[in-house]
């Protein structure tokens, strides 16, 4: 359904610095599967998601190499018209920031109906309304009718996020790219929405790329998990294996930073230091300056992507 093949992307930063934000990324999402992507803020998750739909402003791109395919169609050199046909209809997109993606002057109903009209010009308003209400319920809206005429500022944070999910679902796309879709939603609703999305994956062959920093959420929804750091893929494999017995020290540190609900009440442990900026990456392994297990070779030479099991890859000298 989605194939990313050795994809690298360099953006133009201020003062003409080159920012290599993605390096040699290879990933794929099969029909009826969900790939979860985790990583710290600034690791390149959103840039990757935007690349898939050709949503990055052309003026900020310095260099692209590698390929992205949706249903065997090359996205990397598709025209704007081809991309417009794909967006919303074949591929649904849930944006990270609902407030910036929603029009503050449009009512909830109109925001979602707009997507319907864009792809089905001949549809009558009754059918469009019905599609909107159905999408809202699927996105976890308890009383969709009550909020149809509300403006974004009159909705709570979690309702705005559910509105974004409804927008992505309304055309029944075959692939959904979800960028942190449930950060503002409580656990009960999250469970409901994740269960519903998982049902669509299992029963209707929906494919999904699900970005989140919450590894608990990713375990619930994804078949495979990829860990991104500093524009590099550090670990990629079956979700249960990666989470139970992480092979990369970074994955282990991410898991330790997750607030837990175990009996003992203890603050999670933050990862020391900060993510290096894309134009200032360490010479060896990109995680070497923060890694508790780093040895000499880690500081000097980039480790290659190693296959360590069936469909399981790690980038580490260990």
């Amino acid at each position: 359904m989605l194939k990313i093949d050795n994809y690298s992307l360099t953006l133009k930063g201020s003062n003409k610095v080159s920012l290599p934000v993605l390096e040699n990324i290879s990933l794929k999402v099969d029909k009826g599967k969900c790939l979860g992507i985790a990583g710290e803020s600034g690791s390149g998750k959103s840039v990757l998601a935007m690349s898939i739909l050709g949503l990055l402003p052309k003026t900020s791109i310095e260099h692209i190499s590698g390929q992205i395919y949706i249903n065997d169609k090359k996205i990397t050199n598709a025209s704007e018209k081809e991309l417009n046909d794909i967006r919303g209809k074949e591929v649904g997109f849930i944006f990270q920031e609902p407030m910036t993606a929603m029009n503050p002057l449009m009512k909830l109903k109109e925001q979602i109906a707009e997507v319907v009209y864009a792809h089905k010009k001949e549809i009558n308003s009754k059918d469009a309304d019905e599609a909107v209400i159905k999408a809202l319920s699927r996105a976890g809206f308890k009383e969709p009718l009550k909020f149809l005429d509300s403006y974004p500022h009159q909705l709570s944070g979690g309702m705005r996020q559910r509105a974004m999910i409804a927008m992505a679902l309304v055309m029944n796309p075959k692939l959904i790219i979800a960028d942190e879709p449930t950060t503002a939603i409580d656990a009960e609703l999250q469970t409901e929405i994740l269960t519903e999305l998982r049902r669509q994956i299992d029963n209707f062959g929906l494919s999904m790329l699900f970005i989140s920093h919450d590894l608990g959420v990713l375990r619930s929804i994804s078949d495979d998990i990829a860990i991104l750091y500093c524009g590099n893929l550090l670990e990629k494999g079956p979700a249960n294996l990666v989470l139970k017995n992480p092979k990369h020290p970074y994955t282990a540190d991410l898991i330790a930073a997750l607030p837990r609900l175990t009996l003992e009440r203890k603050l999670p442990s933050p990862i020391k230091g900060t993510l290096p900026s894309p134009n200032n990456k360490p010479k060896g392994c990109v995680y070497s300056d923060r890694c508790k297990k780093a040895k000499d070779i880690c500081f000097n030479t980039r480790p290659p992507l190693k296959e360590i099991g069936n469909n399981y890859f790690v980038t580490c000298w260990e």
Partner: peptide, 16 residues
């Protein structure tokens, strides 16, 4: 919701 939008490692730093 001062830490909800932050990734887990930054979240842990802010709680600290």
């Amino acid at each position: 919701e001062a830490v909800s939008a932050l990734d887990v490692s930054v979240q842990a730093q802010i709680l600290d």
